[in-house]
Amino acid sequence: MAKETVSKNTFKNLPPGVCVPWEQKAKELGEIKGDPEIIKNQWEQLDAFAYMYLWWWVQR
C-alpha cells in the first residue's frame, strides 16, 4: 500500500465543516477594503464543500 507514513497536521481541533478556518485566511489577507462578511461567507461555503468531499469518502 502506498503512503505508509502519517502526515503532520497543519491545524488542530477544527470544528466540522472547516478545512482552513476563515480566521487563518483573514490573517493572510491582511487589510480588507470592503465588507469582510461577504468574503468570509463565500470562503466558508467553498471550504465546507471541500470538507464534504473529503468526508464523503469516509461516510459510506
Partner: peptide, 18 residues
C-alpha cells in the same frame, strides 16, 4: 493520534492517497 488531532486533514493527506 493524527486522526484524533484533525480528522479532516488526515483524510486528505493520509487516507485518500491510500
Amino acid at each position: 493520534d493524527a486522526f484524533i488531532e484533525n480528522p479532516t486533514e488526515w483524510i486528505l493527506n493520509t487516507f485518500l492517497p491510500r
